[in-house]
Nucleic acid binder design. Sequence first.
RNA 1: GCGUCGGUGGCAGAGUGGUCAAUUGCAUUUGGCUGUAAACCAAACGCCCUUGCGGCUACGGGGGUUCGAAUCCCUCCCGGCGCA
Length: 403
Amino acid sequence: MSSIGFTVEKQVKHSLARAGVLHTPHGTISTPAFVAVATKADVKGISVQQFPALGIQTIIANTYHLYLSGQRAVEQAGGVGSFMGFSGPTMTDSGGFQVFSLGVGFGKKLSKFLPEEAAREEGVTVFDEDLATSHGKLAIIDEEGVSFTSHLDGSLHRFTPERSIEIQHALGADIIFAFDECTAPNADYAYQTEAMDRTHRWAKRSLAAHRRNLDQRQGLWGIVQGGRFADLRIQSAKELASMDFDGYGIGGSFSKHDILGILDMVNRELPPEKARHLLGIGEPEDLFIGVAAGIDTFDCVLPTRNGRTGGIYTTYGKIQIPNAQYATDTRPLDEGCACPVCTIHTRAYISHLFRTHELLGPVLASMHNVYFLTNLTQRIRQSILDGRFEEFRDSFLSTYMAR
RNA sequence: GCGUCGGUGGCAGAGUGGUCAAUUGCAUUUGGCUGUAAACCAAACGCCCUUGCGGCUACGGGGGUUCGAAUCCCUCCCGGCGCA
């Protein structure tokens, strides 16, 4: 068995919502928790020294990105955590998301939450496609695995479940993920079924590859797929639950309007004594939905991506800090926020930093945003422990969603 | 004073007889971003109008040639450079 353990501290009655503690070789994670995204072994713009003040308990790095650059240095350092100078728990994603973003998603602007009609439309070309293969994308899927063209230099690479696990062993995170196929939000039922079945076969192979390894300190999470189709999601959850994973991830795309129901159905099929991670989802309103449906941990690029591009989370919803109306606003980013940014700086200052393209603007904005989400999950956790999760949710959303 | 090159939208800078309200960059305004190909992307950006293959005024000022001028000619004003 791995060294990963999960303890449920409090289970909300008549609900899947719960507060717990996830134990790893590098310490514990109080859940529900927000996992900061550190794709290339850094939370973009944020120093590890800031982690405690920002409430960052754990990070998730990416197998594909570190494989393309940095793997040897990570191994030499003894793992992604020590490479970063971070002593806490770490995770690595398997590269399955890149199957999507460099595959059918390449050159297109596809959100995992686009309404179905919009999702079916031809995506908008966003980036230079010169690097693309003749297929117009960088990843080609077959039964055995995925052939990638590096987005960095066009070189050809191949990932299989075994290879992804091997690299993740080398990267040494506490929690690693099975290699899956993240499908496009507009994938039809037939393709979604095919991809899901393949993901299940890859899950078995990932698990076998992991168990063959002598180092069982790492925990392996299986990833539920099935897209926006409830029956596929349930089927996927059942199949993965029958495999001996140390925890579970839920990946892929959803329809915004029924994500709660789908997550709820999925999590009812997953073993309650194991932790559940919702991959890549993390707007504040989504966190409440996830927690209510039994999710323990979340990761999302939004706090750092929004932060870098001027989007700021506040109690009253998101704002665009570079906008003219904040240029002389002497309030903090979010009134009442206890983060290291809000206790010192004004909106006017940070708006100015963005307008003058100073590096510090995106840095401070990212810091605040990450704190906003880690703090929100900890407040959710406390509300569960106090037996007032629903009141807290309603109270928070009534102001956050008011705009 | 003579010669020469030039004066284009907030700025820089294309255009050099029609398809030019005028390429592009910056600035400005706004929107988007959900397991990061992203310190990014998109839209708007003379005035009027609800709209449009819409109307009006525009490329230093004035005048002219032409069916038609930011583009050619004359003149004036301003600037750079060279010579006195």
